[in-house]
Amino acid sequence: MKDKTVIITGAASGIGKAAALLFASAGANVVVSDIHEQEGIKLAEEICAQGGKASFFRTDVAIAAQMEALVSFAVKTYGKLDVAVNNAGIGGEQNPIADMSIEGWQQVISVNLNSLFYGMKYQIFAMLQSGGGSIVNISSILGAVGFLGSGGYSAAKHGIIGLTQTAALEYSAQNIRVNAVGPGFIDTPLLNALDAQVKNQLVAMHPIGRLGKSEEVAELIFWLASDKSSFVTGSYYPIDGGYLAK
């Protein structure tokens, strides 16, 4: 991974932050992207202070032009794009489908699914210019099953897997690998709004008996991005403490 250029969206916290720190520790040039500017700048500065290489670029992933600008920034700053981790996402409105607002549906699809199309569109173009690369898309266990009150989220995460498989078919012969990761419930800021009782209920859904850690997901992302997974493309890897095995 040394001297490879990596874009990570939603990198200011949670899984994205853990991935950014891991890639940087391996010598990569990390483009920290997030809508939360203060936290993103702080992370880039932290990486540089530890001897790594990182830059921050503010991006609203739901806006195509900003995703294009992010890729352009990475290429102009570091000369090429080798790896993209499309991680940014939101939980979205929690309601049964008949009660979900049109605005709530559109927001979660825009942030969690449209952004993946925008990202891959420009990331793939850049990778083709430099001879290939690896894209890791962050889906969810809810990319494989449904979940009460999360119709929009589940639909978006299912869609990510379809996009991933299609991109892998279209670009594998051109040395671009595309894979998806499906985390279970991970102890990240997305869960901070939940009370202790609800968190305990989530824990009980995982046979391993706990929530996942961001660092554990980052290790899987890193492997998929690296040459060690050179024969892996078009795949969906749950990392869920046994959630989907039930």
Results as ranks from 00 to 15, higher is better:
187 D>I: 11
73 F>K: 13
86 N>W: 07
178 V>C: 06
14 G>N: 08
7 I>N: 09
153 Y>E: 02
160 I>C: 05
239 I>F: 04
144 A>V: 05
204 A>D: 08
80 K>Y: 11
87 N>R: 04
199 K>P: 07
237 Y>L: 14
30 V>S: 05
202 L>F: 14
24 A>C: 12
235 S>Y: 10
48 C>P: 02
157 K>H: 06
102 I>L: 14
25 S>D: 14
95 N>H: 12
121 K>G: 03
62 A>N: 08
235 S>C: 12
231 F>Q: 11
228 K>T: 14
5 T>M: 09
183 P>C: 06
56 F>D: 00
15 I>M: 09
163 L>C: 05
183 P>V: 09
55 S>Y: 00
65 A>W: 00
5 T>W: 10
209 G>I: 08
242 G>F: 10
20 A>N: 07
93 E>S: 06
223 W>A: 09
61 V>M: 04
39 E>K: 13
2 K>H: 15
202 L>G: 04
16 G>A: 14
214 S>F: 07
1 M>G: 04
1 M>T: 11
54 A>I: 07
143 G>N: 06
204 A>R: 13
94 Q>E: 13
122 Y>L: 01
175 N>P: 10
114 N>Y: 13
93 E>T: 09
183 P>S: 02
20 A>R: 10
51 G>Q: 09
5 T>R: 09
205 M>I: 02
134 S>A: 15
212 G>T: 03
51 G>K: 04
151 G>V: 02
19 A>K: 10
207 P>M: 09
72 S>T: 11
74 A>E: 03
17 K>F: 00
156 A>P: 00
223 W>F: 15
191 L>P: 11
76 K>Q: 13
9 T>H: 05
36 H>P: 00
242 G>E: 11
